[in-house]
Simulated assay, not measured.
Amino acid sequence: MCRRRNRNDKSCQKYRKIMANLIFDYDGTIHNSMKIYEPSFRNAYQWLVDNNYAEQRDFSYEEISYWLGFNSTDMWQQFQPNLAPEIKEKVRKILGNYMGEYAENGKAELFDGAEDMLLDLKNQGHTLIFLSNCRVQYMERHKRIFRLDRFFDYFYCCEEYDFLPKYQIFRKISSQHSGQYIIIGDRFHDIETATKNGLKSIGCGYGYGTVKELEKSDIIVNNINEIPAAVKLLTEEI
């Protein structure tokens, strides 16, 4: 019988692979959202200008990508707080309609390597869970276009939970799945879900969040292809 003198004696360590519930963010983690969000944002803002609800101005890529990850109601409340509620709702729909048109016309793209990464993790036996701050229509459209149900076992979005923050949605869905959880995402909403629920997390540095947003994640990956290795590190037990 092998007896270890200490935990660092690797001569007789045995590793057991744990299958985990992997909760993935979508926009900025799987979906290269700026391909359709940037032109949609610019078109929606131009509608505000054309109708005298906003001043003409230009936006940088970074200014626009900042709003990815927010649910659309919170985004417009923070971005244009002085707009009347009915105008916020109208411009929200305009932006969403543009995104829908771009997606249906083949302009939406997943990050390179996303499908292979998801398939790899699924084939290993992990449970893949989609959790996004999007609306149901958006989720269902992308599920259809990219056949996301090839990879994901469960789908959840914030509209189904009255736009609660992700960390609260997790508390409502966690009892439906047994085992360990790992949160994978590119924004503070994702890392907050992990820290407020005592979970492990992988921060996606290739997405739209800042380094500061991801600083509390257990591992930061800078390429989508690094996610399986990060999952492996977080699911190995001695």
Rank of each mutant, 00 (worst) to 15 (best):
E86F: 13
L118Q: 08
Y98T: 08
Y208D: 08
E89N: 14
A230I: 02
F111H: 06
D50G: 10
M75D: 09
D116K: 14
S40D: 04
I182Y: 01
F155G: 09
L121M: 07
M99I: 09
G113K: 00
F170L: 11
M34D: 13
Q137I: 12
Y206F: 10
L83T: 08
R57N: 05
A108M: 04
K35S: 06
L214E: 07
F163K: 05
G100F: 07
V211W: 04
L95S: 13
R4K: 11
R3A: 11
G96E: 13
L119Q: 15
R5S: 11
R171Q: 15
F111T: 05
I184R: 04
C2E: 10
F155H: 08
A108E: 01
S132A: 15
Y208L: 09
D50F: 07
T73S: 08
E140S: 04
F24I: 00
G28T: 06
S11H: 03
T195M: 06
V49S: 07
R150Q: 14
A114D: 10
D74A: 12
S72T: 12
K90A: 15
I169E: 06
V49T: 08
G185Y: 04
C2R: 11
M75L: 15
Y15I: 15
G125H: 01
A20G: 04
F130N: 11
E55C: 06
I64R: 07
L148N: 02
L131M: 15
D153H: 14
Y53A: 12
G113L: 03
K200Y: 02
Y102N: 05
K88N: 13
I23D: 02
M19S: 08
N97A: 11
R7E: 13
G69N: 06
E160Y: 06
G113C: 03
K107Q: 15
Y154A: 15
F152R: 05
K232E: 15
V136S: 14
I129A: 10
F151V: 03
D153N: 14
K35I: 02
N21Y: 03
Y208K: 05
L121P: 02
I36E: 04
N51C: 05
S33Q: 12
L110C: 06
S201Y: 02
L148K: 05
R42Q: 08
F70C: 01
P85A: 15
Y154R: 13
E237K: 14
I145Q: 01
C2N: 12
Q137M: 10
G125Y: 02
F79L: 14
L148P: 01
Y15T: 13
S178I: 12
T195W: 01
I173K: 06
R141N: 08
E62R: 12
E140C: 05
I184G: 05
P165E: 00
A103L: 12
Y181T: 01
S65L: 05
I220N: 12
M117R: 04
D149A: 01
Y206P: 00
C12K: 01
M75H: 07
Q56Y: 12
K14W: 03
V49D: 07
L48H: 07
I30F: 04
A194S: 05
K212S: 14
R42E: 09
L118F: 07
P39V: 00
A44E: 10
